[in-house]
Design a binder for these strands. Structure first.
Lengths: 204, 204
DNA sequence: ACCCTCTCAGACAGGTCTGTCTATCCTAAT
DNA sequence: ATTAGGATAGACAGACCTGTCTGAGAGGGT
């Protein structure tokens, strides 16, 4: 056992962990500052020093989840080879997520539902959504589909529906359903004209 | 001009209208009682006489929207004949809904995101969702599909994704996208074994 | 005329919320 | 040993929240 630090996490980290637990569990409007600092065992001044105000803490909480989700998806995608498999693999990652015992819907959907669309929180939500959509569009491009943006929009629509069904109907199979539909979407999507990397090598 | 009443709506009705406007616009937790009674021009006692407490008002607001949505969908479906057309027509109705200038996402998704899953509000949400799913399953049965419940689950997944995209990405074409996918889902869905209403009139 | 129901206006209690501020303590680097 | 930075505990202000209560007005039906 070499020098495992085991130091008490910083006030900032404990705040973020508590924010994640309470905001995600009960909603960002419902949970007050006092609940969070008590749960974190931290002084109120530490919160305002680290995050400025409550909105700052909410944004940090969403950034934290954004990174966590990106990591999970990225890691899952290494299991697959072709762009098509990777696109479908996104739903596999989602399936693992919604199977968690403490799953309570999409943090971004729920936070967004509680605040005006143009707040700082809304910007974090936008970041998350555009990252995912760009990933999908990139994979669709690599996969040679004719309309990568259209594919991305369709797949994100499916991806968006899953947390709703998983949370509101307590249906842990939603991701599997979405994956099956996504498979059909990809199967019927037209491919782009063959690559023209060799300029106009017109065969006929 | 025959006796057009034009009486001032009752306090209850004005409260419900204000609740609809403010709760839907800003969220059920964000908007306080005081804002509502001021907007409605109504005494606080009238609210507590009519609805008991705030949760009662929120539930009434959700019931109001539930009925409105049921009416709109039901009315839209009269335009179509076959079960398949009716199933797709649900997305046409949704398309009209999300095109409204003041559209702000699905009231049920947003309310549910702000409260614990097992509150009275959660029950209203369940009512709405199971009504829609039953409608879809009934139409799928009439349409002769082999797995009506599976169809309903798939179509509701699509239906759930639309408000998310429409609100968070300000994408008013989401319903059209969903409709197109739904069409593919129905096209590839297996039909049930031919009806046996006439006992075994085996043609061959 | 009388009553009854609905309604209004607003004070009030008791609690919670965010955010600021003071004052103290601990630790680690200089 | 001293000092600076981070952390803690907690009081405090000012606003807002839900829900109750009192007291009064208005209108219709009998």
């Amino acid at each position: 056992m070499v020098a495992k630090p085991m130091v008490k996490p910083s006030a900032r980290d404990r705040l973020l962990a508590s924010a994640n637990e309470l905001f995600y569990g009960e909603g960002v409007q419902t949970v007050g500052i006092d609940r969070i600092i008590e749960h974190a065992g931290v002084a109120k001044a530490s919160l305002y020093n680290s995050f400025g105000n409550k909105e700052g803490l909410v944004c940090a909480y969403l950034r934290f989840r954004n990174e966590r989700t990106r990591d999970r998806i990225t890691r899952t995608l290494t299991r697959f080879r072709t762009p098509r498999e990777k696109l479908l693999g996104i739903f596999d990652a989602q399936g693992e997520t919604i199977a968690a015992a403490d799953y309570n819907g999409c943090a971004f959907q729920r936070a967004s539902a509680e605040v005006p669309n143009d707040s700082g929180i809304g910007r974090e939500v936008d970041n998350y959504r555009s990252w995912l959509r760009d990933l999908m569009a990139r994979l669709a491009t690599e996969g040679g589909y004719a309309d990568p943006d259209g594919i991305a929009r369709q797949l994100q629509l499916l991806y968006d529906g899953v947390p709703v069904a998983a949370r509101m109907d307590r249906d842990p199979t939603a991701a599997t359903t979405a994956r099956a539909i996504a498979e059909a979407v990809l199967a019927s999507a037209p491919l782009a004209a063959p690559a023209q990397s060799e300029p106009a090598a017109v065969l006929a």
